[in-house]
Structure formats: structure tokens, C-alpha cells
Amino acid sequence: MPIRLRVDGLAASRGEDPIFREVCLVLDAGGALLVTGRNGTGKSTFLRTLAGLHPADSGTILLEGVTDPTAPVRESLQYLGHRNAMKRDLTVAENLVFWARFSGQAGDPAKDGDAALEAVGLGGLGHLPFGYLSAGQQRRAALARLLVAHRPVWLMDEPTAALDTASERMVEALIARHRATGGIVIAATHQALDVPGAQTLTMSGFAVPT
């Protein structure tokens, strides 16, 4: 059964200040949403609210079509935040194998890790400590985490931060591939990412949409 993400009347605040109100959206399998807006308008907060990492004031987030409908939605999401969630002292491959195992991914994590590194253009660098990589390479390694620990919905916060133009194309290809297999992608970005058929959500700060 294809999945469908349904967000209804979502609202969140930071302290006393409302960040967004009454956000409603429906994303079908293969759908994508680009969240845009200036700095400080709440793109990250929106993604963190969806991920269950920031409390919502009101509203519901539902994921239809998953095997266990009673499980919290956050378990079907894969969140790529500003920070890469990788340990500097471990090698890239060790980091990926850990996340694959920890996320309960079936299969051979070492082989999946190599394939994922190949897909993000870091093939053959798995033996290096994560801290040795450049900022752009670290970001690409973090993207590889999304591939080794499969979740149907990707939440990406500035996925192309620190990436060069060629790597931006690579991110677009990853997004397209994930959507082609029935996944959903929600990305907050400043860069003009080419995501065909994507809905857009423009965050405008404290203005309440009517």
C-alpha cells in the first residue's frame, strides 16, 4: 500500500513566539515538498516539529499506509539536520554500519555502506576517520546515512550546505531515486534545488496565513 503523509493544522512556537500556524499538507508516495523562506522564519523548526523533536502546539501528523499505524510517525522518518550525526573518531564506514545496525536495517550493513558511499561519490573513502574529511565530504557521508538506514520519509534540513554544484546534482538524483521507489522527501533549502513536481511551502515568519 503506498504511503501518504497528512499534516493537518500544525502549529508550533519557540517560547512565546509563534513560528507557524495552521500548516496543512498532503504528500502522496513519490511526493516532495520544498520548504523555503528567509533565515529565521522557521524552516528548521518546521522540520523538527514533523520529526517529533520540537513540540507542536496543535495539529496532527499522520502517515497512512505503514505496516504499524499505531507506531509514532517519527519512527518512519529519517532526519538529516544541520549536524551530520557522525562521530569524528570513527571511520566513515564504521559510522554508516553503526547507523544501519542501530536503525534495525536488515541485510549486510558493510556492503550497503560501501554502496551508499559509492552513490554519494565517496567510494573508497570508507576507511578514513570521519573527522579527516572536508566539510562537503562530511555532508555527503551524512547523506549516505539516509541510504543505509531506509525510512520512507526523508526530512532534509539544508541538504546541500557546503556542497559544490556537482554534488547538488547528486543530491537531486538521490531525491529523485528515493521518490521513484515510493518515498516522500521534505527538504528545507536556500539553493534552487531542481525537484520536479514538488510542492512548495514558503515560511514567512510570524505572518499568519488566512
Binding site: Y79, H82, R83, N84, K87, F102, G104
Partner: peptide, 11 residues
């Protein structure tokens, strides 16, 4: 390094 966020979201 952001790993806590991912851990909080696991099954």
C-alpha cells in the same frame, strides 16, 4: 554532533 536527534526518533 546531532546523533541524539536520530536516536530519539528510533523504534
Amino acid at each position: 554532533d546531532g546523533a541524539l536527534d536520530v536516536m530519539l526518533m528510533q523504534e
